[in-house]
Computed example of a mutant assay.
Amino acid sequence: MFKTALIYPAAALAEIAGCFSFWAWLRLGKSIWWLLPGVFALVIFAWLLALTDSEAAGRAYAAYGGIYIAASLGWLWAAEGMRPDRWDITGAIVCITGAVIILVGPR
């Protein structure tokens, strides 16, 4: 569980950075060279997610989804300068709660 708690935020950062590079290229008019680090970040994301302590990929991905949502709101604030509102924060709390239930629920 501890290992997964470290991997998920790192995977989220890699995925968001990778996806943002495509966003920057398509939507913000950045150079096509932005795609190179983006592809690299997405490869790192996939590798990290495969390292989680889960017996099933689907369960690992489901739990990761909650962390990704919260990390995306952090990106919104830190990288895009838009502060999440109370509904964003409430939604993130619900998602993280769901991720914890998936991860620690008795099997």
Rank of each mutant, 00 (worst) to 15 (best):
residue 26 L to T: 14
residue 46 A to I: 12
residue 47 W to Q: 03
residue 38 G to W: 07
residue 37 P to N: 01
residue 40 F to C: 04
residue 22 F to T: 06
residue 20 F to G: 10
residue 28 L to S: 12
residue 34 W to K: 07
residue 29 G to D: 07
residue 38 G to T: 11
residue 29 G to H: 10
residue 22 F to L: 11
residue 54 S to K: 02
residue 31 S to W: 05
residue 49 L to P: 07
residue 43 V to Y: 01
residue 38 G to A: 08
residue 42 L to Q: 06
residue 25 W to K: 10
residue 47 W to M: 04
residue 49 L to H: 04
residue 39 V to I: 15
residue 53 D to K: 07
residue 21 S to R: 07
residue 38 G to E: 05
residue 26 L to K: 15
residue 46 A to L: 12
residue 35 L to W: 03
residue 52 T to G: 02
residue 31 S to T: 11
residue 47 W to D: 00
residue 46 A to G: 12
residue 32 I to A: 15
residue 52 T to C: 07
residue 51 L to M: 12
residue 22 F to M: 07
residue 44 I to D: 09
residue 29 G to V: 09
residue 34 W to S: 11
residue 41 A to G: 02
residue 25 W to D: 08
residue 22 F to R: 05
residue 41 A to W: 03
residue 41 A to K: 05
residue 23 W to P: 13
residue 25 W to V: 13
residue 53 D to Q: 07
residue 24 A to W: 15
residue 47 W to G: 01
residue 39 V to Y: 10
residue 52 T to M: 02
residue 35 L to Y: 03
residue 31 S to D: 09
residue 40 F to D: 00
residue 42 L to N: 08
residue 38 G to R: 10
residue 40 F to K: 00
residue 21 S to D: 03
residue 35 L to A: 05
residue 50 A to I: 08
residue 23 W to R: 15
residue 34 W to T: 11
residue 27 R to S: 15
residue 25 W to N: 09
residue 52 T to V: 09
residue 49 L to K: 06
residue 22 F to N: 02
residue 48 L to I: 06
residue 48 L to D: 02
residue 36 L to T: 12
residue 54 S to P: 02
residue 30 K to W: 09
residue 25 W to G: 11
residue 20 F to M: 14
residue 36 L to R: 04
residue 42 L to H: 05
residue 25 W to M: 13
residue 27 R to V: 15
residue 45 F to V: 00
residue 48 L to M: 06
residue 24 A to L: 15
residue 51 L to N: 09
residue 48 L to F: 06
residue 44 I to A: 13
residue 53 D to W: 02
residue 40 F to M: 04
residue 43 V to G: 00
residue 37 P to K: 02
residue 43 V to A: 05
residue 24 A to N: 13
residue 43 V to E: 00
residue 52 T to N: 03
residue 50 A to T: 14
residue 44 I to Y: 10
residue 29 G to Q: 08
residue 23 W to K: 15
residue 39 V to H: 09
residue 53 D to T: 07
residue 29 G to K: 10
residue 52 T to Q: 04
residue 36 L to Y: 08
residue 40 F to V: 10
residue 51 L to T: 08
residue 38 G to L: 07
residue 30 K to E: 06
residue 32 I to G: 14
residue 25 W to Y: 15
residue 22 F to D: 02
residue 28 L to M: 12
residue 28 L to C: 10
residue 44 I to H: 08
residue 52 T to I: 04
residue 53 D to M: 01
residue 34 W to M: 10
residue 41 A to N: 03
residue 51 L to C: 11
residue 31 S to G: 06
residue 51 L to Y: 04
residue 44 I to N: 11
residue 32 I to M: 13
residue 33 W to C: 02
residue 39 V to C: 10
residue 39 V to T: 12
residue 22 F to W: 11
residue 38 G to V: 10
residue 43 V to F: 03
residue 53 D to S: 07
residue 27 R to L: 14
residue 54 S to I: 00
residue 22 F to Y: 11
residue 31 S to H: 06
residue 46 A to E: 09
residue 37 P to Y: 01
residue 46 A to P: 12
residue 33 W to P: 02
residue 49 L to A: 05
residue 52 T to P: 05
residue 41 A to V: 04
residue 44 I to S: 08
residue 42 L to E: 03
residue 32 I to C: 13
residue 35 L to E: 01
residue 46 A to V: 13
residue 31 S to A: 09
residue 40 F to I: 08
residue 37 P to Q: 01
residue 30 K to A: 07
residue 50 A to E: 09
residue 42 L to Y: 04
residue 33 W to S: 05
residue 49 L to Y: 03
residue 34 W to Q: 09
residue 37 P to L: 01
